[in-house]
Amino acid sequence: MNVKMLLLMCWMPFAAQAQGFAGLGTQVEGFSVPQPDPTFDFPADHGPHNDYRIEWWYLTANLKGADGTDYGLQWTLFRSALAPEAGAGWAAPQLWMGHAAVTTPGNHYVSERFARGGIGQAGVTAVPFAAWIDDWELSGDWNTLQMRAGGPEFAYDMQLTAEGPLIFHGDNGFSEKSAAGQASYYYSQPFFAIEGILQLPDGDIAVTGNAWLDREWSSQPLADNQTGWDWFSLSFDSGAKLMGFRLQQTDGVNFTSATWISPEGEATPYSDGALQAVPLAVNDADVPVRWQVTLPDKGVDVTVAAINDNAWMTTSVPYWEGPVTVRGTHAGIGYLEMTGYD
């Protein structure tokens, strides 16, 4: 049993019925299911929700070096539960997976970690807030956070400072993912200023920029006919931001959702159909790396283009994740994530 096969079995616990991307379209009995009109309780909700099957702490950042070079950075911790309880020791049914990456215009460095819950190798605590796997860690009080991670060819050490409020997507944090009602709890902190040092094979680089931290948990976030998604987090020069995603369905119809975030932090949710995202060009591996994204209600009609076409995450469950530039009616930067293309 090698790690990858084990992982796939964990992430797709019921292989025979596995559907959607990485088994996210599978309903599992015994786990809680997100309900509309949620009431969040902070700081407790920054911590894990063990009665939900999957959960993540997902941070992406657009960075610039002193010479103006664009960089991208990712720090992600996934939680996957075999059973809806925290448990203790080796028998704890919580599994953890970490992904870290640094994208330069010419390179993409990826590292992946796995850990069992219950023994202290990985986990999340709400008070004081800390999320970790091995030596990777994201910790602080959500006004300021420290973050570090690394692999054989890269490492980074960053400080983050929040410059705006938390943003709740969908209906006050209840984010619908399909017409059939699949949903997750989903909130973000898109207003982090970030600075720190990237260690790359050619040397250390001091960088600054913006980071966007997503929190999401659910038990069956995708419908069983949804095979992947294209997710955009765009920060415009005006200070406004746009989160949008498009879920690919086997019936050829796509489900879209978006949140417009004003520079002051006011969120306007848009339901299915308001946002349009159309692929314009693909890279060598047939993954679309240029998109036309439109949100007519806000007069948005922009072209989103990858800074490095080959930001492929060569992890156990592979996907594309990398920094983008935005041109058109609104200029800016952002991050693009695409799954279901392998």
Binding site: M1, N2, M5, L6, M9, C10, P13, L82, A83, G87, W90, A91, A92, P93, L95, R116
Partner: peptide
């Protein structure tokens, strides 16, 4: 390449791990 040679019928991650 370490441990049981290959995942196969009867191998169940949840049962193996907990």
């Amino acid at each position: 390449g370490i441990g049981p040679v290959a995942p196969q019928e009867g191998a169940d991650a949840a049962r193996f791990l907990s």
